[in-house]
């Protein structure tokens, strides 16, 4: 497994591996797709969709899953059994939001016993060309990338 970080990663406090495992588990369980971790330098396409949630705790963070539309469509198709041509953009946004929700919910449940608690916002989704997320230089961010054939996902955690 390769989790990659940008910025001064030594102060990160959230267990990134938990989020990575939760994402892989959610996609495998709900869609039957095995995502493999790849290095940060692995070239992915341009993100056109993003799902996000705010994790309010100590520290607080923004959890994001970024992908291109075909990747999201492939995952939602496998989740629902509905052909990708019949899925609407709302279905794709909703599916990506659900995926973020499952990842955050899974980690919150696993951390509950350790006293490391956080509140979750409602999931949000963004779409658009050339989608990119910019943060202030002091905002630490962990980045993990995953692929399964032509499907790719990025998991980002911004410590706000």
């Amino acid at each position: 497994m390769m989790e990659n970080s940008t910025g001064p990663a030594q102060r990160l406090e959230w267990p990134v591996t938990m989020f990575v495992e939760a994402l892989k588990d959610a996609v495998a369980t709900m869609a039957g797709i095995t995502m493999e971790s790849v290095d940060e330098s692995f070239l992915t396409g341009e993100a056109t969709m993003g799902g996000m949630m705010v994790l309010q705790g100590d520290p607080s963070a923004v959890l994001m899953i970024l992908a291109d539309q075909p990747s999201v469509a492939a995952i939602v198709t496998n989740m629902t059994g509905i052909d990708s041509g019949e899925l609407t953009i709302e279905d794709l946004r909703d599916g990506l939001s659900e995926l973020v929700n499952m990842v955050a919910g899974t980690v919150r449940g696993r951390l509950a016993g350790s006293g490391n608690r956080f509140k979750l916002s409602s999931p949000l989704a963004v779409t658009g060309e050339h989608l990119a997320v910019y943060a202030k230089r002091h905002v630490e961010c962990s980045l993990s990338r995953f692929v399964a054939g032509d499907i790719w996902l990025e998991l980002k955690i911004f410590y706000i």
Binding site: M30, V76, T80, D94, S97, E98
Partner: peptide, 11 residues
């Protein structure tokens, strides 16, 4: 409230 979850339940 999730259309995708409702589709999964529909299945």
């Amino acid at each position: 409230d999730s259309s995708v979850v409702r589709k999964i339940i529909r299945m």
